[in-house]
Computed example of a mutant assay.
Amino acid sequence: MRKLLLILPLATVMVLAGCTTLDPYTGERKVSAATKGAAVGAAAGAVIGNVTTRRDRTKRAMIGAGVGALAGAAVGNYMDRQELELRQQLEGTGVSVTRVGDHLVLNMPGNITFDVNRAEVKPEFYEVLNSVAQVARRYDQTAIEVAGHTDSTGSVQHNMELSQRRADSVARYLEGQGISRVRLDTIGFGPHQPVADNSTTHGRTLNRRVELTLIPLTL
């Protein structure tokens, strides 16, 4: 991720340097609004496209920390048991559990996790995260990707930053509940992965969320 952060500012500078407009009032050259948007979009695209690399990095970190990898039929059985326990723990909390192959996705709606435009986890949501941590501690061969998402209201840059801060807040809380840092990765997707229509109030509510993707450590 450090290399990515070094590359992005350089790429942004190159884009901005090549796309300026002449201010008709001052006679000075300035970066066009369209170019600024393109630069933010390019940075967001780089983050989204880096998911596989990030997951590989987390896998290497876990193996380096001495966590054993799963293989063969053991993977499915391991995730079956983890899914069952999470469904039991999270029933009635508003958090959904979705199985995608051997991955589990926990969808935590923003309206029950955070106040509007804030990144601090609501105290009333601690119990839910405690339940997640309780299961996660028992299944320590699972990596946890914490992804923040927003609706499309406001600037892309603001939403990218807000989604990252929210993901970081959830990860810090889980770490405080005994989940090893090497198992955790955070990423902010901003408004770029909507699950509903942003033109409706209900759709925007659904898009404001944090998702935990639980990924088994495999060979």
Rank of each mutant, 00 (worst) to 15 (best):
G27L: 04
T52K: 06
T98D: 12
E175Q: 11
P109M: 11
R60A: 10
R87Y: 00
R166L: 02
D168Y: 00
K30C: 01
F114A: 00
A71S: 13
V182Q: 15
G18F: 11
T213C: 00
Q157M: 09
R172Y: 02
V128P: 05
L106W: 02
L212P: 08
V156P: 01
A61L: 07
T20F: 05
H149K: 04
G18N: 09
A136Q: 12
L4D: 07
I112G: 04
F125I: 06
A119N: 10
R165W: 02
A74P: 01
V182T: 15
G41Y: 03
Q82M: 15
V195K: 10
G188H: 03
E211C: 02
G190S: 09
L16H: 12
H202R: 14
V100T: 11
F114K: 12
R29W: 08
F125D: 04
D151F: 03
E161G: 02
A136Y: 02
L84T: 10
G203N: 14
V47G: 01
H192F: 04
R99E: 07
T93F: 01
T186P: 05
I215Y: 05
V146Y: 07
R54L: 12
S180H: 10
A46I: 11
H192Q: 10
V40H: 07
Y139Q: 07
G18K: 09
